[in-house]
C-alpha cells in the first residue's frame, strides 16, 4: 500500500518538499480508503436527506470522536509492531473512574479528567511492561490485561450510573462559529497525530515496527519505544472515554468493550499494515469514520433491530476481507 520499498523506513520529514512527498504518500496509500468514505457518505446522504443539517452533523460527529481517538491509539501500537486488545477495556475503565470522581459536579471535573488520563497512562504502562519486560506476545498479553481492566471497571462502577455535569455534555454538542465542537475534537486529534509524527519517538516507533532488530542495531531504544507506544495509546483511550462521557452523560461499565474490534478494523481499513512499521493515523481516522457511517447506514436503512448487529458484524468482516485482498495480490506477485 505504501509505495516505499520495504527497506526504506520513514526518514525525518524536514523540508517542505518532504512534506509534499509525504502528503502524496498519504493520498496514494489512501485511495481505497477515500473511495470507501465517499461511498458511505453518498449512501448516508441518500438515506438521510438532512445529513448535512447542523443538528445531524453535530450528532454524527459526536459519535465519531470516541472511535477516532481509539483508532489513532491503536494505530500507534500497531505501527510499533504490537497490538492492543485491551484498548476498549481501557476506555471503559477510564470512563468509569472519571464519572465516579466527577460525581455530577463541574468543580470536580479537572481532577476527574486528570485521573481519567492517568488511568489511560497507567494501563498503557502496564501493557507496555507486560509486553516488553515480560516479553509476552502482545495479542494474548493485552487480551489478558483487558480482563484485568474490565474487571477493575466493574469494581469501580458495578452497574451503569453516575452523571456528568450538563455543561460538559452540552458543551460537547455545541459549535464554535458554526463548526461542531466534536469536529474540532477530531481535527485536534488529527493535528495531535501530525505533531507526534514529527517527534523522534514516532520515528523510533516506525523503526521498531518495521524491523526491531535493525532498529536495535541502530541504537534505537527498542524497549522504551515499545512501552511509549502503549502509553500513548492509553492516553488516546482516555480521550475516547471522555468523548463517550460527553456524548452519553453517564457511566457504563461495559461501554468500551466493543470498541476494541472497531479500532483494529479502522486501522486495517485505513491502510496500516498489522505487521507494523507502515501506515499512519490519518487513514485510521478515516477508517473509524467509515465504520461509524456504516452503522448509521444500517440504522437508517430500516434493518430490523434484531438484525442490526449481524449487519454491522458482517460489514466489519467484509471490510477486513477487502483490506486483505491487495495484500494477497502483492505477496503473490513478489
Amino acid at each position: 500500500m505504501n509505495p516505499a520499498p520495504p527497506g526504506t523506513r520513514e526518514p525525518a520529514p524536514a523540508t517542505l518538499a518532504h512534506w509534499w512527498g509525504r502528503l502524496r504518500d498519504i493520498q496514494v496509500s489512501g485511495t481505497a480508503t477515500v473511495a470507501m468514505l465517499v461511498v458511505v457518505i453518498a449512501v448516508n446522504v441518500a438515506l438521510q436527506p438532512n445529513f448535512f443539517d447542523q443538528y445531524a452533523l453535530t450528532s454524527n460527529f459526536a459519535t465519531f470522536v470516541p472511535l477516532v481517538a481509539i483508532a489513532v491509539g491503536q494505530t500507534i501500537v500497531v505501527l510499533s509492531g504490537g497490538i492492543d486488545l485491551s484498548l476498549g477495556a481501557q476506555v471503559t475503565l477510564a470512563s468509569v473512574v472519571t464519572v465516579q470522581l466527577t460525581d455530577g459536579e463541574l468543580g470536580n471535573l479537572p481532577l476527574a479528567l486528570t485521573a481519567g488520563l492517568g488511568v489511560g497512562v497507567a494501563c498503557g504502562l502496564f501493557n507496555g511492561l507486560v509486553v516488553v519486560v515480560a516479553r509476552l506476545q502482545p495479542i494474548v498479553a493485552t487480551f489478558a490485561t483487558s480482563f484485568v481492566f474490565s474487571g477493575l471497571a466493574l469494581v469501580v462502577l458495578p452497574r451503569p450510573g453516575g452523571t456528568m455535569p450538563s455543561e460538559f455534555t452540552s458543551g460537547y454538542r455545541d459549535s464554535v462559529l458554526g463548526v461542531p465542537v466534536a469536529l474540532l475534537a477530531i481535527l485536534a486529534i488529527a493535528a495531535g497525530w501530525l505533531l507526534l509524527r514529527r517527534h523522534r519517538v514516532t520515528r523510533h516507533i516506525y523503526a521498531v515496527g518495521g524491523n526491531a532488530e535493525a532498529a536495535f542495531a541502530s541504537l534505537v531504544p527498542v524497549a522504551r519505544t515499545r512501552i511509549t507506544a502503549y502509553v500513548i495509546a492509553g492516553m488516546f483511550a482516555s480521550v475516547s472515554a471522555f468523548a463517550i462521557l460527553a456524548n452519553t452523560g453517564a457511566g457504563d461499565p461495559f461501554i468500551g468493550n466493543e470498541l476494541t474490534l472497531t479500532s483494529v478494523a479502522a486501522v486495517v481499513i485505513g491502510g496500516t499494515a498489522l505487521r507494523g512499521g507502515r501506515g499512519g493515523a490519518i487513514g485510521s481516522i478515516l477508517g473509524a469514520i467509515i465504520l461509524a457511517l456504516v452503522s448509521n447506514i444500517v440504522f437508517f436503512a430500516d434493518v430490523p433491530s434484531t438484525y442490526r448487529q449481524l449487519a454491522n458484524g458482517l460489514v466489519v468482516i467484509l471490510a477486513l476481507a477487502l483490506a486483505g485482498i491487495p495484500a494477497l495480490q502483492k505477496r503473490r506477485s513478489a
Binding site: 474490534l261 483494529v264 498489522l274 458484524g313 466489519v316 477486513l320 476481507a321 486483505g324
Partner: peptide
C-alpha cells in the same frame, strides 16, 4: 478468512464474535 484472505486469526475470530452475536439476536 484466515487462510485465503490472510486476515490475522485474532482479528478474524474477534470479528466473528460480532457476527455470531448478530446471528444469535436475529
Amino acid at each position: 478468512g484466515i487462510t485465503y484472505l490472510r486476515i490475522p486469526p485474532f482479528v478474524m475470530t474477534l470479528g466473528m464474535i460480532g457476527v455470531v452475536q448478530g446471528l444469535i439476536l436475529a
